[in-house]
């Protein structure tokens, strides 16, 4: 397979046809029941969450309940309007946190799917404490006493991605990207020229391959040639296999160890 550049991966990660959170949820889990609202302000449709079963009869692993959270982009303009292009407001992150705390209470592992251009920069978002909502998630996720697996399936951009990204394992699909902000934003800030986004993408270390080297992620899930949309079932199946195997591993260690190891994982970021 020809070498794919970082900016080509950005395009792949953002493709309208690329599978979104709900596509993976429907493939990997059974009986997904979506739960709504942050119990405070509203229900943010750019982020979905609920309870589902995970299991694999072919491997004699019987179904067990898990909590699933995902940033949900649309596949067309209409869906994207409804989903706000996967850009969450504070109530979205607060809904995610509510469901994660609920998972902890009932001892369910948590799986999150990251796919967002970033937290929504709107007036309402600021009025309702976008910064506080993200900060709270980072702090609370770091000490949840259940296994957390985070999967970057498309575009993981900025604090909006990290807000559901503090896990025991952080994995990326082969063509997903994960970055501090979009290459366009990076180019306009550092090169004072948004049209240099391609150049920015190559320099930002945003691909799964680069981030694995930086120890920001733990695992890369391969995609078929041309991208995940060409064989959703295959990608979902490798992802499912990885998720089940990892949850079984993580369930073997004590809660204290689990939390401490998650702490150590993020504690090391930026130390060389």
């Amino acid at each position: 397979m020809a070498k794919i550049t970082a900016s080509e991966r950005v395009n792949l990660a953002r493709m309208a046809e690329r599978p979104k959170a709900l596509d993976y949820i429907n493939e990997i889990f059974t009986d997904f029941m979506e739960l709504h609202g942050d119990r405070n302000f509203g229900d943010d449709k750019s982020i979905i969450g609920g309870i589902a079963y995970l299991g694999d009869s072919s491997k004699k692993i019987s179904d067990f309940p898990v909590t699933v959270i995902g940033e949900q982009k649309g596949k067309n303009v209409k869906e994207n309007m409804e989903r706000n292009f996967g850009m969450c407001n504070p109530e979205g992150y607060r809904k995610a946190l509510r469901l994660m705390k609920q998972a902890e209470k009932f001892g369910r592992p948590i799986i999150t799917f990251i796919d967002t251009p970033g937290a929504y920069p709107g007036m309402g978002a600021e009025e309702r404490g976008q910064g506080e909502a993200i900060a709270r998630n980072l702090m609370e996720m770091s000490e949840l006493e259940v296994p957390i697996i985070c999967v970057v399936i498309g575009e993981g951009s900025s604090g909006g991605a990290l807000a559901i990204g503090v896990g025991d394992r952080v994995v990326m699909l082969e063509n997903a990207v994960y970055s501090i902000l979009s290459p366009e934003g990076f180019a306009s800030i550092l090169y004072k020229d948004a049209s240099k986004a391609k150049e920015a993408a190559e320099n930002m270390k945003i691909t799964a391959q680069d981030l694995k080297k930086l120890n920001v992620i733990d695992k890369i899930i391969s995609e078929p040639e041309g991208g995940a949309q060409n064989d959703l079932k295959q990608v979902a199946s490798s992802l499912k296999e990885y998720i089940i195997k990892t949850i079984k591993e993580l369930e073997k260690i004590s809660k204290d160890e689990l939390v401490q190891e998650r702490y150590n994982k993020f504690r090391k970021m930026g130390q060389y």
């Binding site: 993200i134 900060a135 980072l138 702090m139 609370e140 770091s142 000490e143 900025s158 604090g159 990290l162 990204g165 503090v166 994960y178 970055s179 501090i180 902000l181 990076f186 800030i189 550092l190 930002m204 270390k205 945003i206 981030l211 930086l214 920001v216 998650r262 702490y263 993020f266 504690r267 970021m269 930026g270």
Partner: peptide, 26 residues
Amino acid sequence: GARMQEGIISLMQMAKTSAALAKHNK
């Protein structure tokens, strides 16, 4: 905000400091 020149590693400092504060809080 986060320092752009250090890319994703700057983003990760948000998780690192917040996790440390969780311990402090506890």
